[in-house]
C-alpha cells in the first residue's frame, strides 16, 4: 500500500519567556526552551485511520500542526503526498483537510454555506463539482437546515458537522482531526465518529485523529500511536491493545453464597455486595480459569461475566508505563 504520510525524527522546541524581575525582563529577557516533540517518527498508509493519543502536553497537537503546515519543526523530515508541509503550504492545502475542535474555520457571522462557497473558490473547485459535492455532503451529514444559519447561532455539535463538511469539501486525501469531539454530548460524538468513518471509507481518505476520548479511537481508527513527553511510546493496531498490552480482566460473579473469600495472588476485589462480586484478575499472576475454579469450589455460581478493562484504563496504563520508562531512562 502506498505511503501517504512519512515522518522521521521530528523535533520541535518552543521558546518560553522566563519570569524575572520587571527591569531585567524589559532590558534582557531570558527564555527557556521546552521540547514539545522529541524525535517522533511514523508513517501512514493511504486510507488508514490512525488515532494519535497522549496525555495533555504530549505533543499531539504540535505534531498535527507541523504535519498540516502550520508550524515549522526544528529538525526532522515530513513528507505528505510528496510535499514538505512548511515549505509547500499552498500546494499541500489542496491535499489535506483539517478540523481543530477548539478552533473554527467557519466565518462566525456568516451562514456555513457562505463559508463553503468561499472555500470552494479558495480550493479552485469548478461550480458544478462544488454544487454536487456540497449537496452530497450536506445530505450525508443531514445538515440541510443548519448550513443556512449564521455560525454563531449553531450548537457545538452542529458547528462540528459544518467544520467537517468544510474540511472534506475539496476531497482531501488526508484528514487531520484534532480533538473533533471535544465538548460534545454522547449522541453528537457518536454521529461525528460515524460520519468521519463513513466519509473516510467511501473516499479512501487517510485520517489522523487526536483525541482524549478513547471512544473516538475505538469507533473510528484501525491503528493507534501513543506519544508522551514528545516521544513515541507505542504504535500498534487498536484491536491488539486489549489482547496484547493489558494483563488484567474484570470478572463479575453472581453466586448462591452471600459472600466468599477469594483472596489470592493477583486478585483484587473491586466491589463486594451480597451474592455479587466484581474482581480484577492480574492474568500475569493468576489465570482467570484458575480463579474461577477456586471460586466454584467455594460457591455455586449463578452467572459469570469476564470483561476487558475499559479502553480508558488501558490508555492510562500505557501513559503510566511510558512515563515510568522515560523516568528510568
Amino acid at each position: 500500500m502506498k505511503t501517504s504520510v512519512r515522518v522521521e525524527n521530528l523535533h520541535k522546541f518552543f521558546k518560553i519567556r522566563k519570569k524575572t524581575s520587571l527591569i531585567r525582563s524589559f532590558i534582557c529577557p531570558e527564555y527557556q526552551q521546552v521540547q514539545a516533540v522529541d524525535g517522533i517518527g511514523f508513517s501512514l498508509n493511504e486510507g488508514e485511520k490512525v488515532a494519535f493519543v497522549g496525555p495533555n502536553g504530549a505533543g499531539k497537537s504540535t505534531t498535527i500542526k507541523i504535519l498540516s503546515g502550520i508550524l515549522y519543526p526544528d529538525t526532522g523530515l515530513v513528507e505528505i503526498g510528496g510535499f514538505t508541509p512548511w515549505i509547500d503550504r499552498q500546494k499541500l492545502a489542496f491535499q489535506i483537510g483539517t478540523v481543530f475542535g477548539q478552533r473554527s474555520q467557519l466565518w462566525y457571522h456568516l451562514p456555513a454555506k457562505d463559508t463553503f462557497e468561499l472555500l470552494s473558490y479558495a480550493y479552485e473547485m469548478g461550480r458544478n463539482d462544488y454544487k454536487t459535492r456540497v449537496k452530497s455532503l450536506v445530505g450525508e451529514f443531514d445538515a440541510g437546515e443548519i448550513i443556512e444559519k449564521p455560525v454563531r447561532q449553531l450548537s457545538l455539535g452542529e458547528r462540528m458537522k459544518c467544520e467537517i463538511i468544510a474540511s472534506l469539501l475539496h476531497r482531501p486525501k488526508i484528514l487531520f482531526l484534532d480533538e473533533p469531539t471535544v465538548g460534545l454530548d454522547v449522541v453528537s460524538k457518536g454521529v461525528i465518529r460515524d460520519l468521519v468513518k463513513r466519509a473516510s471509507d467511501e473516499d479512501g481518505t487517510t485520517v489522523l485523529l487526536t483525541s482524549h476520548d478513547t471512544g473516538d479511537m475505538e469507533r473510528v481508527c484501525d491503528r493507534v500511536i501513543v506519544i508522551d513527553h514528545g516521544h513515541l511510546v507505542m504504535d500498534q493496531p487498536v484491536r491488539d491493545l486489549r489482547s496484547g498490552y493489558i494483563r488484567e480482566k474484570i470478572v463479575h460473579l453472581a453466586m448462591k453464597e452471600t459472600e466468599i473469600d477469594v483472596r489470592m495472588a493477583g486478585v483484587d476485589v473491586i466491589e463486594a455486595r451480597p451474592h455479587v462480586l466484581k474482581i480484577k484478575v492480574d492474568t500475569s499472576r493468576t489465570s482467570v480459569e484458575f480463579f474461577l475454579q477456586q471460586a466454584m469450589q467455594k460457591s455455586a455460581l449463578v452467572d459469570i461475566t469476564v470483561e476487558d478493562p475499559p479502553m480508558e484504563d488501558i490508555i492510562k496504563s500505557i501513559y503510566a508505563n511510558g512515563a515510568g520508562r522515560l523516568a528510568s531512562s
Binding site: L71, T98, Q105, Y123
Partner: peptide, 11 residues
Amino acid sequence: NIGYFLNRPMP
C-alpha cells in the same frame, strides 16, 4: 488563529 489560516491554498 493565524496558524489555522495557514493551511489554506491562499496566503
